[in-house]
Nucleic acid binder design. Structure first.
Lengths: 173, 173
DNA sequence: GCGACCTTATCAGGTGTCCTGACCATCTGT
DNA sequence: ACAGATGGTCAGGACACCTGATAAGGTCGC
């Protein structure tokens, strides 16, 4: 039972079985569901003042001082856009700006303790979400999904893949 | 080679391996890539004046006369929003409005010939896209992806699944 | 050491896509 | 026949992006 509306006898487009929801639409449904799950988990974890837009900061801000320009480049947005998001998160106490000692034009950005905690919570909830989806839809299929998506990301958006942030990374050696 | 930045020795969140891009982010990358592929295929097919927003009409408008309200409900948007989109597509010649003979308040919407052609083209391109992705990433994995996503959609957004439109369906019997 | 040029960040303003609220014309149930 | 629901539209606003311009500060050639 995947279809409700009976099919026409002749299909103008003849583009395969039209009861198949287009794959991109199907994926969008799923990704929306994922984000909805994540957001409600965030709320349950007591984080109520972070909007989806803020995600780019928590995903890409790392280290002990990043420039707005660099963060924007990682996030794939303009510095103006990220600037506004950064203003927001600064006002909320998740990140702070301080002057770059080596360049009087620049300001450096870093997560506050509150911000680091929130970032860690987020990453932990992502993990939990993946486990829950594994339980709900089969860990084998979710594993296939992940490796497939990783290959897709590498093939289609190579620049975006390696730059994903981990909680407070610091170079070894 | 999935990671570029070396890991910290101690991971604050300890939320599994942080080199794993969060699943929702990974899916978003993939879905964006899909839409990008689809849009460029649309352009190659000579359809250059349809914006992503217009998709809701081509996805959900079917039959020989639908009300704005019903279309909006299917698309999950307000009638005001869909009204604007409909104005747009009417001006572009893809759909037309005509008065509902049974209700003087209402207007009915239907695709023009141009609109039906575009819809059919779209569905055909979706099919082609899925084939191309099967070739590129493995038909087995794409098949798993599809059935998984269908189960997800059914579980997480049951209302959205059956109402997807096919090109010009007409009830049998 | 100094002008030409590139960056950094920010200000100002605009666009596209959604939303809520208010409204009139019309239909429906009692 | 009238109260209340419904169909469509107008007006206005939120939000997440964008482009362009500008001031302050680096960098490099010579």
């Amino acid at each position: 039972m995947t279809r409700k509306i009976p099919l026409d006898k002749e299909l103008p487009g003849a583009a395969g079985d039209p009861s198949r929801i287009p794959l991109p639409a199907l994926m969008e449904l799923a990704v929306d569901a994922m984000w909805a799950d994540f957001r409600s988990a965030l709320l349950e974890a007591g984080i109520t003042d972070i909007r989806p837009t803020h995600g780019c900061v928590f995903r890409f801000l790392h280290g002990d001082g990043m420039r707005l320009t660099d963060l924007a480049a990682l996030a794939g947005l303009t510095k103006q856009s990220v600037g506004e998001i950064v203003d927001d998160l600064t006002a909320l106490g998740y990140i702070e700006r301080y002057p770059d000692p080596t360049d009087k034009r620049a300001k450096l950005l870093r997560l506050t303790v509150k911000g680091k905690t929130a970032q860690a919570t987020g990453f932990s909830l992502f993990s939990k979400l993946e486990e829950e989806w594994s339980d709900a839809f089969g860990s084998d299929d979710i594993a296939v999904l992940r490796t497939l998506l990783e290959r897709v990301a590498l093939a289609k958006a190579p620049g975006a893949v390696p730059e994903i942030v981990r909680p407070d990374p610091a170079p070894i050696a």
